Computed example of a mutant assay.
Amino acid sequence: MKEIAPDARAFHELAAAADRLLAALDGLTDADAAAPSRLPGWSRGHVLSHLAAQAPALERLLTWARTGVETPQYASRAARDAEIEAGTRLSADALVTRVRQSAAHWQDAAESLPEPAWDATIRPFTGESCTPRRILVIRLRELVLHLVDLDLGHEIDGVPPHARDIVLADVLGYYAHADGVPAFTLLDAEGARLARFGHGGPVVRGTRAAHLAWLSGRSDGAALAADELPDLPPWI
């Protein structure tokens, strides 16, 4: 599982990712929010409602780390889904305000977390045990990928390199331990190996952005060079 240190650079990347997303929401109308996102079955409003609810959910994990009292990210999947759905009934202005306020509150909570708490053991909704250093990656990943999902003109190739590489490493780490991953090798645009899964299989070459877009399900892989793209199991 990818983790990053809670240092000034990490906090800057998180704040910058939130700023990019919020800038994209400037002038969003109710019709815009009701329009489909790139995620099947979700409107832009669903994506925004998820982002607004996810920040305090991740903050609950920071509370767990700080206090030692088990504080689940969500009460249940049903409660999580109901909260997202309820948010879609808000106006675009109200949704954007929730995203902005929750992002600022989460950033403050992360930056003020006491040093010993960063080594505490917590458990996200996905079930694995980790430290809050992992939560920094999850939050960055959500901000980076959901900006693309909003379908407001942003693509993976516009993600700053450092943030992109953190998210790419996280996705590659998932596939390294996932079931049903076929054999294949990833090379970057210069031919350096990024990852190898199993033995043999096709070689897939392209930019880091193109790899991230394909591996995370944000593209069909058309920007990659390969005799045949392997059939990947779903990511997350």
Rank of each mutant, 00 (worst) to 15 (best):
L95S: 08
S129A: 10
A176T: 13
I122C: 07
T131A: 13
A117N: 07
W118N: 04
P161V: 00
V96N: 07
A163Q: 14
D108H: 12
H154N: 03
I138S: 10
A178L: 14
S102Y: 06
I135M: 13
A120E: 05
A110T: 03
T131Q: 11
A120N: 08
H105E: 14
R164Y: 03
P160V: 00
A94W: 06
V144R: 11
S91D: 08
H177D: 14
G127V: 03
R133F: 04
L145I: 08
V171C: 15
A183C: 14
S112V: 01
D151G: 06
S91Q: 08
R164I: 00
L152Y: 09
P182L: 04
V181N: 12
S102I: 01
I138M: 15
V96A: 11
P161L: 01
D170A: 15
D119P: 03
D157C: 04
A110Y: 11
Y174G: 02
I135G: 04
V159W: 05
E115W: 04
D179K: 15
W106G: 02
R98A: 13
L172P: 09
R141I: 00
D93H: 11
F184R: 01
L150V: 02
L90F: 09
D165H: 14
V96I: 11
R100W: 04
T131P: 07
E128W: 10
D157W: 09
P124E: 02
H162E: 12
P132H: 04
R164S: 07
A178N: 10
R141D: 07
H146E: 02
Y175G: 02
E155Y: 07
L143E: 08
P124S: 04
T97I: 00
H162R: 15
L172W: 08
L150M: 04
V99Y: 11
P114I: 01
V96T: 12
G153V: 04
I138P: 01
A103N: 14
P160F: 01
V137H: 09
A163P: 09
A104I: 02
R89A: 12
E115A: 15
G173F: 11
I135P: 04
A178V: 10
D119S: 13
V167H: 13
T97K: 14
L143N: 05
A104F: 03
V159E: 15
T126L: 13
P114W: 10
T126V: 09
A109V: 01
I135Q: 08
P114E: 08
R139A: 05
P161C: 00
A94S: 13
G180P: 13
V171W: 08
H162F: 07
T97A: 15
D165E: 15
T131N: 06
G180N: 12
D170F: 15
L95N: 06
A176W: 02
G158E: 15
I156H: 08
R133K: 13
T131I: 01
Y175M: 00
I135S: 09
